[in-house]
Nucleic acid binder design. Structure first.
Length: 484
RNA sequence: GCACCGUUCGUCUAGGGGUUAGGACACCGCUCUUUCACAGCGGUAACACGGGUUCAAUUCCCGUACGGUGUACCA
């Protein structure tokens, strides 16, 4: 039987970075095994539905290079892939369980349930549906149940959990997990609005869609026994489970927006490369047992196995992600990067944005920044004529320093096309200019950089001068001279 | 509270009965250098604790501690 996995988000908001990783692991596992990766939308909670969320999540996944073989957007033989479109199915399967005695009607109001939990809490026992004390099919009797149903009373259908039975399943990542039946709640399967809960819909769909491996976040581990019971109740073979560890905040709690950006769209907006993000995220909780840290999507597909997924949660290290993006930045084709940077430059109103020129600037400065867009700020003096104001320290260094002024003046007089064309000529001129006032050439470089770029740090000054061009260099030197 | 899951440098991790416990990010230092960065070299830094089992345990077992997740008519 060929592998079939699914990624099953709910359309309640933007795609979370943790979800991206879960989707990625599903995708990698499917590709690695020549199987299918299915997208299923779990929108059974009508109150939490967010307009446009499905589209956003699919787009974020696609941005990362994660595509699906079946799903609401691409079709397939096991559709529909949106649970709200499968509404009737769940009722039908829920009723099968009522008929075979593994599920039952319950009529309790939420107030009654709250009261029950309160009672249990104060009695110091675990909150759990009390089948023998609440208002349900068993306590009310067949006749009364029938009557309530006939008169259209609000009701739910609950799973009848076998009390005296250990539930066990094998998780690829965790190993054998055993839970005592008495710990498991009589989960609601069908809500009073007729919609299924996650638990029912999930099991029914995974079975009907012939899912072989359920790869999902660790937060689902505690409810997996319910799902196993559900499979048993239906008489179905459960899929293989693999619960992947959580992505964590620095304080080791479940990763949330409290500590920084967590939505994929935030990472896109910040300018991360999709392959850098995918590379980084794949290594949060998994590694192929090698010291190499750089993997293309194809590399990941080739080496991914669930057996090498870690058990413990991983703190999401933004700093290391930045580093990795910088590494990708250094390997990208400058021409491609120029295309990406262009709109940013235009938006900032720069006028030196010829693609070839921009690519040269990128090649010069990219090892100093993390994102392509940073280059617009880092090398603004190359893209436009307006310079940022000099810092106070820079001003102090240049002001009233006769030696430097004089050396700069000498430099300006000697600057011509031939100097700009050749690094040695440039260095020679700088040296002569400096020595003319008894300075070392190094002592002139900083003032020169300040005058030409208004920045204290930057890339190689000769290359910078070259890219600036003679005209701009002269006019900036002149502007300095006329001020001093 | 109860259930489940987890625990190797600050972080991501490799490893696994006998190792100088390896790599990466970050940090510190040196080299290079016109600055910053890159690169190169070097450094600080970890097996949560207690019992077993064993000739030997960081590695296997059991506890404890700590942490996380779950405990909804949410997923």
């Amino acid at each position: 039987m060929s592998v079939r996995v699914r990624f099953a988000p709910s359309p309640t908001g933007f795609l979370h970075i943790g979800s991206l990783r879960t989707a990625l692991y599903n995708y990698l596992f499917a590709r690695h095994n020549g199987g299918s990766c299915i997208l299923r939308i779990e929108d059974t909670d009508r109150t939490r539905f967010v307009e446009g969320a499905i589209e956003e999540q699919i787009a974020s996944l696609a941005w990362a290079g994660i595509t699906f073989d079946e799903g609401p957007h691409v079709g397939g033989n096991h559709g529909p892939y949106t649970q709200s479109e499968r509404f009737d199915l769940y009722r039908e399967y829920g009723m099968k369980l009522v008929e075979n005695g593994t599920a039952y009607y319950a009529f309790d109001t939420s107030e009654e349930l709250d009261a029950m939990r309160l009672r249990q809490q104060s009695a110091g026992i675990a909150p759990k549906y009390d089948r023998s004390a609440m208002r349900n099919q068993y306590t009310l009797g067949e006749e009364e149940t029938r009557r309530l149903l006939d008169e259209g009373a609000a009701h739910v259908i609950r799973l009848k959990v076998p009390l005296h039975q250990d539930v066990r399943f094998s998780d690829i990542i965790r190993g054998e997990v055993i839970v005592n039946g008495r710990e498991i709640d009589d989960q609601i399967l069908l809500k009073s609005d007729g919609f299924p809960t996650y638990h029912l819909a999930n099991v029914v769909d995974d079975h009907l869609m012939e899912i072989t491996h359920v790869i999902r976040a660790e937060e689902w581990l505690p409810s997996t026994p319910k799902h196993i019971i559900l499979y048993q109740a239906f008489g179905w073979e459960p899929p293989t489970f693999a619960h992947v560890p959580l992505l964590l905040n620095p304080d080791r709690s479940k990763m949330s927006k409290r500590h920084g950006d967590v939505m994929v769209k935030d990472f896109i907006r910040k300018g991360f490369f999709p392959d850098a993000l995918v590379n980084f995220v794949s290594l949060c909780g998994w590694n192929p047992g090698s010291d190499n840290e750089f993997y293309s999507m194809q590399d990941l597909v080739n080496s991914f196995t669930l057996e090498r997924v870690n058990k413990a949660g991983a703190v999401f290290d933004y700093q290391k992600l930045n580093w990795m993006n910088g590494e990708y930045l250094k390997q990208r084709d400058p021409q491609d990067l120029a295309r990406e940077l262009h709109p940013v430059l235009v938006e900032r109103g720069f006028n030196y944005v010829d693609p070839t020129f921009v690519a040269e600037v990128i090649a010069l400065v990219r090892e100093r920044v993390t994102f392509v867009a940073d280059i617009a700020e880092f090398a603004d003096y190359l893209f436009g004529d307006a310079l940022v104001p000099l810092s106070a320290e820079a001003q102090a260094m240049l002001d009233g320093n006769d030696k430097i002024s004089s050396a700069l003046d000498t430099f300006r007089k000697g600057l011509d096309a031939s100097v700009i064309a050749d690094a040695d000529s440039f260095k020679g001129l700088a040296q002569r200019s400096a020595e003319s006032v008894g300075l070392k050439s190094g002592a002139l470089m900083k003032p020169l950089r300040l005058v030409l770029t208004h920045r204290e740090v930057g890339a190689d000054l000769f290359r910078t001068v070259q890219l600036l061009g003679l005209e701009r260099c002269l006019s900036r030197l002149d502007a300095f001279t006329s001020h001093s």
